[in-house]
Amino acid sequence: METLFNDFSLEMTGKDAGKLEEARDTIPPGTRINVTFLENEDGRQRLDAVRAVKRFGYVPVPHISARRLRSHDLLEEYLSALAAEDASDNVLVIAGDPTESLGPFDDSLAVIKSGMLQQYGVRHVGVGGYPEGHPAISESALWSALEGKAATLGQLGLPGVVITQFGFDVDPVLKWLEAVRERGIDLPVRIGVPGPAGVRRLVTMAGRLGVGTSTGIAKKYGFSITNLMGTAGPDKFIRALADGLDPERHGEVKLHFYTFGGLKATSEWIAEFRRGG
């Protein structure tokens, strides 16, 4: 169980920069903290968050949302700003939510192939993974994209990692991990886990992402979709994941926590869970 928590990562939005200080006592030094690239954020907010991550002794992993980039210049401007903060070593490149590109990059692979990442000092690239699929993308397209990104990173000599969307059911996660390895993709994988949050919010987020929330899955996870007033943590999910993982079949696996704005609540939950085993 404890090995699964070694080098876990967290996610925060650009608006969470002010919340990082209150959570710092329970976040281990050197923790990787992803900084989102959302529609309702601007470049200043993202950079302020990146600066806060560095200032408190953590490793910033800025997101780059390919379809939100309206020009090559905007990508270059953001990477240049990150490099100026000595924060361009690690990035996560995703396609982003828009169904159609707002600029020249149709997907994350286009950004990776542009050459600009290496030009501005990127040394490690994260890409997305979807164990339970994506509501707007076919399974075959998801596999083709992941295989293409893994192959391209290998050709460019860029180390990478797959960070998955969060889910509630361990079974599809384990099956997906096994399929990843069977396809020859040997990148480390960080399994997305929702931090402790209100049940209503978890169900709402899951619905937007097409993640299963059937009664059976909710029961496995530890909450009731008929009673949305409580809160839920990922206790059962993580225990089941730890029990089911086989390094020979599933490869290198770590955890990535989606905090939903609750950096302190998530980091405190992790610390308490680790103490309790």
Rank of each mutant, 00 (worst) to 15 (best):
P98W: 12
T99H: 12
D97I: 10
R51Y: 02
V50E: 02
G57F: 13
A81C: 09
D106Q: 13
R68K: 13
P60R: 07
G133A: 05
I64N: 01
L102C: 08
I94M: 08
Y78D: 14
G57S: 10
I64S: 04
V50Y: 08
H63P: 02
I64H: 05
P62H: 06
Y120P: 03
E77Y: 12
S80G: 14
T99G: 11
L74R: 14
P98T: 13
R70D: 06
N40P: 00
P104F: 04
L69E: 07
V125K: 12
G133Q: 07
N90F: 14
Q45K: 08
S114E: 07
E85C: 14
R55N: 13
V93C: 09
P135C: 12
L79Y: 09
R51A: 15
E85R: 14
V111W: 08
D48F: 00
L74T: 13
L92N: 06
A83I: 01
A87S: 12
K113F: 01
G126S: 06
S65Y: 04
D107A: 12
D107K: 11
L38Q: 05
L92S: 02
L117N: 11
D48V: 01
V53A: 05
A87K: 07
S71W: 06
D97Y: 03
P131M: 09
S65P: 11
V125W: 11
Q118I: 10
E100N: 13
R46G: 05
L82Q: 09
A84P: 05
M116V: 02
F56L: 15
V50S: 04
V61N: 10
L117C: 08
D107E: 12
G43A: 10
R67P: 06
Y130T: 08
L82Y: 07
F105Y: 15
D48P: 01
Y120S: 06
R55P: 00
S65K: 00
L75F: 07
A83C: 11
F105V: 05
A52P: 00
L92T: 14
S114Q: 10
I64Y: 04
H72K: 12
M116D: 11
A95S: 15
P98K: 10
I94Y: 08
P104M: 03
S114P: 08
I112C: 03
R67I: 07
E77M: 11
G96T: 13
D48L: 10
G126I: 03
A84R: 14
F56D: 06
E76N: 03
S80V: 01
G121V: 03
D97W: 01
P104G: 05
G128F: 04
A81V: 09
L109C: 09
P135L: 13
Y58R: 06
S71Q: 09
D86N: 15
L92P: 02
S65R: 03
H124C: 09
G133Y: 00
L69V: 05
V59Q: 13
A49C: 14
A52Y: 02
S101N: 07
V127F: 14
L109D: 08
E77C: 00
A110P: 03
A83H: 14
L75C: 10
G43E: 12
S88A: 15
I112K: 04
T99R: 14
A84T: 11
L69T: 11
D89E: 15
P135H: 13
